[in-house]
Design a protein around this nucleic acid. Structure first.
Length: 113
DNA sequence: GGGATGACAATTT
DNA sequence: AAAATTGCCATCC
C-alpha cells in the first residue's frame, strides 16, 4: 500500500458541497471528509490550494467562527456578498454553520436565534 | 529520532 | 465574546 498519504480529494469534494450563505469549521470539514480529528490537516490542505481555485475556501472558518486565513479580508468580503455577516473577521458560526443534516431539512438541537 | 511550525479544537478563566 | 492553556495531527528541518 505504498504511502498512506491523506488525500485532499474528499475534503475538496465536501467543500464543493457547501452552499453559499453558510460556513463550515475545519474540524467538521475534516470529519465529513473521513478524517475525524484532523482539523489541522484540513487547514493545511486549504493553505496549499491555488489562488485561482473555484472552491469556496472562504466559507471555511475555525470552530470560533474566525476567518483564520491569510486572505481574511478577501474572505470576509466574499462572505458578506453571499449573505453572511462578517464582523471584525468573525462570523456568527452559530447561525451560519452548515451540516449535512441541515440539507435534509432536519432540525437538530434548540435554536439560539 | 527529535524539535518547531501551522488557514485547528476543546476547556477554563 | 476574548484570551490563555492543553491536546492533536501532519509536515518540514
Amino acid at each position: 500500500m505504498a504511502t498512506p498519504t491523506l488525500n485532499p480529494e474528499p475534503l475538496l469534494t465536501v467543500l464543493a458541497q457547501v452552499p453559499s450563505g453558510s460556513v463550515i469549521a475545519f474540524g467538521e470539514l475534516a470529519h465529513m471528509a473521513g478524517y475525524p480529528g484532523k482539523a489541522r490537516w484540513a487547514g493545511r490542505v486549504l493553505s496549499q490550494l491555488p489562488g485561482g481555485t473555484a472552491l469556496p475556501w472562504h466559507r471555511v472558518v475555525n470552530a470560533s467562527g474566525v476567518l483564520t486565513c491569510p486572505r481574511a479580508d478577501v474572505a470576509a468580503k466574499r462572505l458578506e456578498r453571499e449573505g453572511v455577516r462578517v464582523q471584525n473577521g468573525r462570523v456568527a458560526i452559530r447561525k451560519y454553520r452548515w451540516s449535512p443534516g441541515l440539507v435534509a431539512g432536519i432540525v437538530t438541537g434548540p435554536e439560539q436565534e
